[in-house]
Amino acid sequence: MTDVSATPAHAAVSERPQGRSFGKIALRWLLYVVLGLFAIYYLMPLFVMVTTSLKSLEEIRTGDLLSLPRELTFDAWRTAWSEACTGIQCEGVKPYFWNSVMLAVPAVMISTLLGAMNGYVIAQWRFRGANIIFALMLFGCFIPFQVVLLPMARVLGLMGIAGTIPGLMFVHVIYGLGFTTLFFRNYYVSIPVELVKAAKVDGAGFVRIFFAIFLPLSIPIIVVSVIWQFTQIWNDFLFGVSFSQAGTQPVTVALNNIVNSTTGVKEYNVDMAAAIIAALPTLLVYIVAGKYFIRGLTAGSVKG
């Protein structure tokens, strides 16, 4: 896997200011200006969200988009957290935020553990057909989920978990398996098979080798898998909107309902505060563990 954070390998390509000619220095400045402008472009929506959420409605109507709030007010945040209406209920995003937590945490743990065991079997205990099974699971990662929505709705009904958080959890575990298996399989495949052979000679079995040797080796890929799955599940909207009902909806669905609820005055500051609340957990993960986040993103797309 290619790591983005690797040091510039071909540093030779970039100009080194040997001559310190005026043109070179100007070019260097231009480069930083262009990069800075793009940074502003990417940050602008976040800036607008934060400042809008701290303004009063009155100030939003009279001021402009990019101005800083004249008077800081956290009313919108309080409303978004515990009072904003998602349709007929007016409890803010708080209950839905906790729905997402209760959904994502177990779903991430289960799918990562299953992925680790699957990857371990496919990479280290190769049996006939294991590669075909892996290919079938891999293809499963790429299907557009629309193609499973209708039957899944019926099966969840038959299982008696339609519209519940465990039902949604089940869906996320199933459709996350392909990716988690892929992560662990690609990680374990680089571990020499001699390790397993030696452990077997010493009398260790399938389970002990996994827990005593492979799991302790897997911390980096566990982090990648957990971050990937958490981001996917937290940010999911399609499954959430299709398989939940009032009261069990994840935070993305609640946010969309708050923004699009047609009753009453449009409170843009509340919308923005709710959006930031919904975005905070994944943003935090990104800031704390960005390296692993990028690795998860590129694992499926960069060969390695």
């Binding site: 607008v48 940010n235 930031i276 943003l283």
Partner: peptide
């Protein structure tokens, strides 16, 4: 900075741009 939008839900992105 360039990459953080990828961590956001599309719903958050949509909400922000709808306002902008």
């Amino acid at each position: 900075i360039y990459l953080y939008p990828m961590a956001l839900s599309m719903i958050v992105t949509g909400t922000a741009w709808k306002w902008i």
